[in-house]
Simulated scan of single mutants.
Amino acid sequence: MGGLLCCVQVNQSTVAVKESFGKYNDVLEPGCHCVPWVLGSRLAGHVTLRMQQLDVRCETKTKDNVFVTVVASIQYRVMADKASDAFYKLTNAKTQLQAYVFDVIRASVPKLNLDDVFEQKNDIAKAVEDQLEKAMSTYGYQIVQTLIVDIEPDEHVKRSMNEINAAARLRVATSEKGEAEKIVQIKRAEGEAEAKYLAGVGIARQRQAIVDGLRDSVLGFSVNVPGTTAKDVLDMVLITQYFDTMKEIGANSKSSAVFIPHGPGMVHDVASQIRDGLLQASSH
């Protein structure tokens, strides 16, 4: 019915290109329009003004000879005042956009190493956007934004990069573990040295106390028992301590048999040996 009345409807966010006898005549805005086909007018086609997106996958090689696939996302739209240029000057906008993206990416990425590609992806996106803006504005297209949404190295390269990263982290962990063990060993050695020093001090004090006790015992016994010499008292005290020691060894040692000299003559030898040992220790 609308065709008979020469009325056409143009939807929102869309414009229509009107021709008269095959020649461009006007761009019709959204709404209802009269296109008298009997007078040679007709609609050549419609052009959408909505935002469009094109995802481009481009395989290229980096400066360090690593093949990567770069995924670029191009957001673009037709400028309303240049809808006729977009309709007449360009047959396939997506193919044209894809060609420019390939050209810029394959000119930029080979100048960078793989790590730099990841770090400078915004610079690559800006270079693509500038090139597209310059080229596509002639055809009535506006480049709204360009994004590098993904950089995919070869699977073997990704596996190698992960192994390198893991090895580096393992090396750091091993170094830290070795440093910790070194600190533990140093502290343990310092503790053992301090313990030995304190044990030596304790032994020295113990021996000094024994010598002082023996001296007091000898002096006291000599005073209370007339006719005894200091040597006799010292021998008796030393022999008593010697047998007390043997008793403790028999009670606490794992071995239940202790061989000691026996006989009356041996007692004098035991006392002499103990006394000489103590005197030598005191002199040192």
Results as ranks from 00 to 15, higher is better:
K187N: 10
H156C: 07
K126D: 13
N165R: 13
E190H: 01
E192A: 08
L147P: 03
V157K: 05
I143M: 02
I186D: 13
V128N: 01
R169Q: 14
V157F: 01
A180L: 06
G140C: 01
E129F: 04
E152N: 11
I143Q: 01
Q131P: 00
D123W: 11
E190S: 02
H156T: 13
E179M: 11
V157D: 01
G178P: 04
M136Q: 02
K182Y: 10
A135R: 03
I183G: 06
V128L: 05
V172C: 05
M161Q: 11
A180K: 06
E152T: 06
N162S: 12
Q145A: 04
V184F: 09
K182V: 05
G191F: 05
H156N: 12
A180M: 05
N165S: 15
R171Q: 14
K158V: 10
D150Y: 02
A127V: 04
S160P: 04
E133L: 13
A167K: 13
N162D: 11
E163Y: 05
I148G: 00
M161F: 04
I151D: 00
E179Q: 14
V172N: 07
D130E: 15
R171A: 15
V128I: 07
D154W: 01
L147N: 08
G140K: 00
N162R: 10
K158Y: 03
K177D: 05
H156G: 05
A180C: 02
E129A: 08
E155M: 10
P153D: 00
E163S: 09
I164M: 10
E152I: 10
I186L: 13
A166Y: 05
A180N: 03
D154H: 03
E179L: 13
I164W: 05
S160K: 14
